[in-house]
Amino acid sequence: MCGVCGCGEGEARIEGKPAHAHAHSDHRPAHDGHDHDHEHAHDHAHDHGAASALGAGPGEPSGTGRWVEIERDILSKNRDLAEQNRRRLTQGGVLAINVMSSPGAGKTTLLTASIEALKGGQPIAVIEGDQETSRDADRIRATGAPAVQVNTGRGCHLDAHMVGHALDRLPLEPGSVLFIENVGNLVCPAAFDLGEARKVALLSVTEGDDKPIKYPDMFMAADLMILTKIDLLPHVDFDVGRVIDHARAVNDRIEVLELSARTGAGMERWLEWIRRAVRPLLEERAAAAERELSALKARLDAAE
């Protein structure tokens, strides 16, 4: 990876092109103003004779070298980039929703149905994450919404860096809803903050009601669990009460919705959930615009 922005050395592609198609210097100002280092370099040489003889324990200096204490999260670079994305999205009045699930739970189907239903209201954009192909972005574009396909190659999740570059390619007006469809995977995407405002985990009723305790990280991280394909409930042994109990056991604040994108059942509650989440962002953006307008008018008065 590139030591400046964390660019991968080649696997991730955005719209078929390497994600890392920019000059490194492009990134410097952002990073310089935003360094979260907590280095405590001890520039003294320890005499670790005793430690060497006994064999060093974890976290202890062992030998002749110089020990540098760092105490920093391994994913801190991703977290920093995610915060940059979050600031950019929030300031722009854009609601970003990170949509996660196992492959085949119905993410793209839910998104195309949501886009059709929201058309004419909120502007919508989509970032599509898949290991290979642009099939999902093509499905989204067929609805008329702008979409950027990120191919992660061998990568099993989207990260904040890929999303940052994808944001550059999308028209994002204030009040937009940005769906970020993560790579189908119920494990890894949970660990990577993308800078989204909400994390949503889909679970289709054909997958089994014990998934929240078998894959707890995903349901711990999610703000909302959506049970999809509920039109299939009569044909499967899936206990809605039990899945909610399991989800609440790992995350007591998780919200739950049930729907079928195919029949449209439950869709209205999901759309209302989205609108409810957009409103405060748009209000804040409008307030900021009013503040800017008052400041400009005051400057205009002063100039007269």
């Binding site: 110089r66 105490e71 999260d73 391994i74 994913l75």
Partner: peptide, 30 residues
């Protein structure tokens, strides 16, 4: 659901060889 410890993923520290402020005290770097 409130996890206190168990989610850590941290780089605690590193040991360096060579460079400035190399170990003194007469011991050769191994």
């Amino acid at each position: 659901p409130k996890v206190v410890t168990g989610r850590e993923m941290q780089l605690v520290g590193i040991e360096l060889d060579g460079g400035r402020a190399a170990p003194a005290r007469g011991r050769p770097a191994q």
